[in-house]
Design a protein around this nucleic acid. Sequence first.
DNA 1: GAACTATTGACAGGTACCTGACAATCCTGC
DNA 2: GCAGGATTGTCAGGTACCTGTCAATAGTTC
Lengths: 148, 148
Amino acid sequence: MTPIEGCSTFLVRHAWLSLRGVVAEALVRHDLSVAQFASLLMLDEVPGLSVADVARKVSTARQSANEMLGGLERAGLVERRPHPSDRRTQQIFLTDAGRQRLAEALPTVQAVEARLAAGFSPDEIAVVNAWLHRMTEAGAASEEIPTL
Amino acid sequence: MTPIEGCSTFLVRHAWLSLRGVVAEALVRHDLSVAQFASLLMLDEVPGLSVADVARKVSTARQSANEMLGGLERAGLVERRPHPSDRRTQQIFLTDAGRQRLAEALPTVQAVEARLAAGFSPDEIAVVNAWLHRMTEAGAASEEIPTL
DNA sequence: GAACTATTGACAGGTACCTGACAATCCTGC
DNA sequence: GCAGGATTGTCAGGTACCTGTCAATAGTTC
């Protein structure tokens, strides 16, 4: 039961696996994977992203993002349009069905997260978020010094 | 750069990916994967675990654990011995080389984590750990209600 | 002690993800 | 302009992980 005391890395791993499981469970009824839900969320916030943009935002390979978006496209939730000025890239937009699907799924996920966060004060949540951000930055920084 | 504001799930995901990257980078020089390091750490703490035990502790499939332990065994860092009373299971023990490898790698990982946690007070770290534990428990609980 | 269930380690097969490469295209410095 | 480098979407191939299954063994109930 005890992950590995003292190594916060593995605490974070277990938390991520657990959260992913819970969110995935909440999303199956909406026929969405966790990654697809994240993409829908981002594309709703910033329409017209390219495949490469999505890949960077969700921290995955361009290839993986492309395949995942293929699923969303086949389901009719997003559509690709040629970029008006850059002939390499395709812009990705949510369809009406995509927006509706997101509107259905988002409250479910938010409810799950709210339920899990119950019992923690806003101050504590702020500390947690700050800590998580710090960890994330650390990784981004280490990429800049790959072979040290 | 902004993962997805408001959804802590994706904050945790980015933190995990980042931490894994940093730790993996620190472990390459010791020729260990993150999962292998975790297994060494556990087997040092609780010698004689079975493959299934290791799988449960690191939250992975028995199969995956078996393959990963195969790598450690081929490297001479662990050894399998038949269980004295249960003829199904094999007990896994660290070899002297395994203990030495762990002793070399552990300070590296601890230094990385200490560097990342710098600037957070013990109280704040305690809050973070409590929050991570809460998330982990949530996942374990949801497994008990798979089809609700 | 016999039947039933659960568990262990292994096997096969599939899935998701990644890396490395490529032509096409954009951008920048000269 | 135009050569050089960077970026985009895509292809091929590999790796790591998972699920589903199996015989062998252990524990449980009657």
